[in-house]
Write a protein that binds this DNA or RNA. Structure first.
Lengths: 340, 340
DNA sequence: TTGAAAGCGCTAACAT
DNA sequence: ATGTTAGCGCTTTCAA
């Protein structure tokens, strides 16, 4: 492995000069610059970032830790983060905790040990411990989900409002028995979205029916099972599902049991689904501004890097309701239309 | 930041002893172990992997560089790789080149500079240059796509055979004018799959119709445009599309123009699509063994790490044809059934 | 403008 | 079993 020393020897200069040339620091005589560059090429020298990072006590890698790389919601965010990182000369690496707190802790430990320049995390649980990072002064930003007991920058979607809009829309479409499949109680996104659901019902003078609420696990299987359970016990005529994978599960149950959407049951899901318009019926969703969430997370990371003492802030972004076929029965179709 | 020195001082031992305890090396008196552990806790010491990696000249991060983190094909592979990495005490980080050769080169450079312990790459182009990694002796494995001019381990799917099976299936279903939308000519997967398509036609005594072949870019937009072009110029009655995103694009064109699948046009795509069974009509696909591809890539990386002089090998995995609705018209439906 | 040299935090060879 | 110490490759003061 070629080192800076060998380059220096080959170019007949000091290592300091080589370093200056490599980093475009200070002023170096053009002749020396040329010699150094020639040596670098001749020896196929490649910078050793490990040594460099150690010496400078800083790195240029940002980590994004997500609970599921297969969930398009998370990968979409990465793009926004990458664009900011690139401007700052950083690279972004994605780590998959797979909803496993142990794996997540491993990645947090790894990011801490590697002294990553910043970490964005969508935590598997609100109890996720990021102190290893915070203690080292590594900028941390919580995306999508708040981190309990950690005073860090946070980027959230307007979960409650989004859920309220979705539920309100189902009411407007004439559905009467609107169910909610939400996530695990400890997940902030799950409880916020459930809150929005309840609020919409109350606003419309409806009762909040405990038998129409199910807590599942944010995964496809959970949505599937919850849908079955709802149909078996509670005769809903619509359902609001609080994340994309569970929505897919719920839909699968409906489709495979010949239950017609939106005629028999109206469906609105939280989060976009890729190719939502290829799914039949096309799916109404509450969309989160994923790219912006990533971008803002990146900006917060950057800001924290420049001023470590900055007060952490929480940014809440608006969601938008995309009304498609799964919640819009033809005027004649809904079983009990409330309004024309 | 707490260092090993401070831990040593606090525990009243040498740094060597601390290091031994931290790494479970050599034998250390239980009393000292206890004192060291206590000091580690008391000071909230966190290992500095940067220094450690420098000293040991080895790291424990594997990088996966893919051309699109949003493509489920790639994220599925990551899981297989992760499982192998975990056994070896490595963490996997995912880098998104976004089909951009420049970004890809940046990530390759970063992985080289950081002296990553291994790199799996699904290259944006066969011309992708991995010499920065190879020169440093970093194990590299090409997944999904071969790397031209680089003598590295390679894990591929049986592209040609898969394409041949898909095309043959369309022939069997009675389709006559079977088109192919493939990727850019420089992509190995594109040409291999095209080859399989041609071969299947010849085998069935069909001509290979140049006007029914389109080269697109492996992205959704490309599939959409190619589908339009085919319909405008060449009146196909079936189409084999060589990757998942282009298939989505092609389907979107068909759906939005009221062209019925599989009645008006039969469709088979390469790669699975998440929730393929929610898409209407459900999509016939050539599925790749993604998890195994990742797992085997991981094993090759591991093998290369242990024996750097091992000859690189190429592993080819079988694909499987999943026949769903998009290619199976009801017996009465196909416009010209070839067989009952 | 250039070079000499210290030292980032850690591990491992060597000495005890 | 434990400690001393050199040095991984680099950047950056400091001196010339």
């Amino acid at each position: 492995m070629t080192t800076i020393q060998e380059v220096a020897r080959h170019a007949k200069v000091s290592t300091a000069t080589v370093s200056r040339v490599l980093n475009n620091h200070g002023s170096v005589h053009p002749d020396l610059v040329r010699r150094v560059r020639a040596a670098v090429d001749a020896l196929a020298y490649q910078r050793n970032a490990v040594a460099r990072n150690l010496r400078r006590s800083q790195t240029s890698l940002w980590a994004v830790i997500v609970s599921d790389v297969g969930n398009p919601f998370f990968t979409a965010m990465v793009r926004g983060l990458e664009d900011v990182a690139q401007q700052r000369g950083c690279s972004v690496v994605l780590c998959n905790s797979d909803e496993d707190p142990e794996k997540e802790a491993d990645y947090i430990a790894a990011a801490a040990a590697e002294r990553m320049a910043g970490v964005a995390i969508s935590a598997a649980s609100t109890a996720t411990d990021v102190t290893p990072l915070v203690d080292l002064g590594i900028p941390v930003v919580a995306i999508d989900r708040r981190l309990r007991g950690a005073n860090v920058d946070t980027v959230l979607a307007d979960n409650q409002r989004g859920a309220e809009a979705a539920t309100g829309h189902l009411v407007d479409m004439g559905y009467r028995r609107i169910a909610c499949i939400t996530g695990p109680p400890q997940a902030m996104t799950a409880s916020e979205r459930l809150k929005g659901y309840k609020r919409a019902l109350r606003r419309h003078g409806r009762e909040v029916p405990p038998d129409l609420i199910r807590h599942a696990d944010f995964r496809e299987r959970g949505g599937y099972d919850a849908m079955r359970s709802l149909l078996a016990d509670s005769a809903p005529d619509a359902v609001f599902v609080t994340n994309n994978l569970m929505t897919v599960g719920a839909l699968k149950y409906l489709v495979s049991h010949g239950i017609r959407v939106p005629r028999d049951i109206g469906v609105v899901g939280f989060d976009e689904i890729p190719w939502a318009d290829l799914i039949r019926p096309s799916l109404s969703t509450v969309a989160q501004p994923t790219y912006d969430m990533g971008r803002i997370a990146g900006q917060l990371l950057a800001a924290h890097s420049s001023s470590p003492d900055k007060q952490p802030e929480t940014v809440v972004l608006r969601t938008s309701l995309n009304i498609r076929a799964s919640s819009t029965p033809a005027p004649s179709e809904p079983r009990r239309a409330r309004q024309a």
